[in-house]
Amino acid sequence: MPEIAASKITETVCDLCRQANFELGEDVVDALNHALKIEESEIGRNILRELIKNAEIAKKEKLPICQDTGLVVVFIELGQEARITGGLLDEAVNEGVSRAYRDLRKSVVSDPFIRENTNDNTPAIIHVEIVPGDRIKIGVLPKGGGAENASSQKMFLPTASKEEIINYVVNCVETAGPKACPPLIIGIGIGGNFDYSAYLAKKALTRRVKQNHSNHDIAQLEKQMLEEVNKTGVGPMGLGGRVTALAVHIETHPCHIASLPVAVNMECHAHRYKEATI
């Protein structure tokens, strides 16, 4: 059985966290450049230029893209033939986060009421899926609080139309307004159950930005939602414009005959996702 050292997991998580915070993905930079071409608002274009320049400074000087270096969400695809040696998976991941955040902002409190900073940005939120194979794929998504706070979930009737779901998403975007730091990337989970829809919404954010779903009908729905969201006029930083979202990504899953869960996970333009397979 192939062995993967826990220390290797720690190193990988640490590297991914730092890369994510300093280097905005090329897919996001391309999406911002495309937005700059189609944005009509002058203030909006200036904001997009600031964001592109910000990404250049961050990468060059190894500075965090955003001061909110986030609560780290970790997606692990664990090959069922692999065996982790020399430590526990959760501890290895959190050790990696702790090392990565020594000189980054620590944004995690130990208790929702007592609110004492844990001082090393742990614990991370860790999602594990067991997959075929003998390797581990690790994805990290440091998630800022502003956009996360604008997220929402609703249990629709199973007879609901696509239009009702589109209206709900548009309404979420308008309610969030500038708070979620538009232009947004919107992750949507449809189906599953209450909790799984939220997981899918977050998982949808790990797809390459602007890459539509492989299923034609879902890809169409993504395009239609993006169009409707961009009609709101919210624009960059909510100051008005044509580009409110850069992309809408949807993931779906089978669900109960009585249910149609829909979760919307908002992501700001400072979309920091990096992955590696070991």
Partner: peptide, 13 residues
Amino acid sequence: FAATGGAAALLGK
């Protein structure tokens, strides 16, 4: 005043 959220490296300068 509104400043650009997420342009924090640039603003830090």
